[in-house]
Design a protein around this nucleic acid. Sequence first.
DNA 1: CATCATCGGTTCTAATATGGAACCCTGAAG
DNA 2: CTTCAGGGTTCCATATTAGAACCGATGATG
Lengths: 170, 170
Amino acid sequence: MRWEEIDGQVCSIARALAIFGDRWTLLIIRDAFRRVRRFSDFQKSLGITRHRLSDRLSRLVEYGILEKRLYDAKRARYEYRLTEKGLDLYPVLMSVVNWGDKWACDGDGSPVVFRHLACGQPTHPKMVCDVCDEPIDAREIRPEVGPGVLKKIARGDDEIKGYETGNSQA
Amino acid sequence: MRWEEIDGQVCSIARALAIFGDRWTLLIIRDAFRRVRRFSDFQKSLGITRHRLSDRLSRLVEYGILEKRLYDAKRARYEYRLTEKGLDLYPVLMSVVNWGDKWACDGDGSPVVFRHLACGQPTHPKMVCDVCDEPIDAREIRPEVGPGVLKKIARGDDEIKGYETGNSQA
DNA sequence: CATCATCGGTTCTAATATGGAACCCTGAAG
DNA sequence: CTTCAGGGTTCCATATTAGAACCGATGATG
């Protein structure tokens, strides 16, 4: 299967990764959260080629994750800013940071720590159940068929691809 | 910069993405959480070419995210299972699912819903501060220089790459 | 006014990664 | 024997990427 067909799958992970699952996109988004906004700043910060960057930024604008905002009308200069859709990726970045700090660091500890302004403390965001507030453990979660599949079956859609429920146990 | 050099950055996101930030790896891990374990099952489920799959699986074993476990000694057949390091990626997958359900779905709703066995309810895992338990919002988090950078400065390491703190505001 | 630098790109070419298909080896099963 | 399944590897054509050069507008410098 070609990568471009991956977003046809009935799977939110596949569809999300079709947008930002390539090698540079999530790093561009990381930079956007660090308030990098201009083409040349992204380029300096990432070391990505201008060509790739140009392409990735326009894709992110297309998908509504970044928006171009004029900051110098005379020279037609734009900056790229996160939209709501983009800001919503924060938990994704945060969970990657958490994992990276734990499993992919060099022994010196976290390069960056995060202070939660609401409570004033350094924080290590964690994922909890929104019903009982207990921390999530893969072994305690059971995936079940959801409406996104049930409705398709009810309509008689053939070819529901990329769908298979299983337990989350390893 | 070449992609392989990205993991030299002093950034947990860059180092994590150096491991699973390519087009197929996270989907392979997703399948592993769905209890897919054998080569041919990964291949059928993903539609990835055997060649790619073979390569990605060995990388994941190298990185300690999957382990090969013998299940048929006579024919030297192995299955691939998540290690602790791999199981720890659950929050990453979960936050991608959450985002995908909200922003990349086709109108039919979530293809998969998750039941939290501990409380018995369908759950939408959320990210909260581990100090005050309030939900995390990008605008309420301020990144600060952490030990992973301070120690390098103290040692006088030159070339601390890919490091720049900024606010998380967009 | 001529020259240079900056920003935000685009165009080129060579190297690298990927998809698709065919092939290989081992050990059952018929 | 012959065939099949599992788990790969090899080969080639195509797609993607890195690196460098080029471009056009504007503004600062001398």
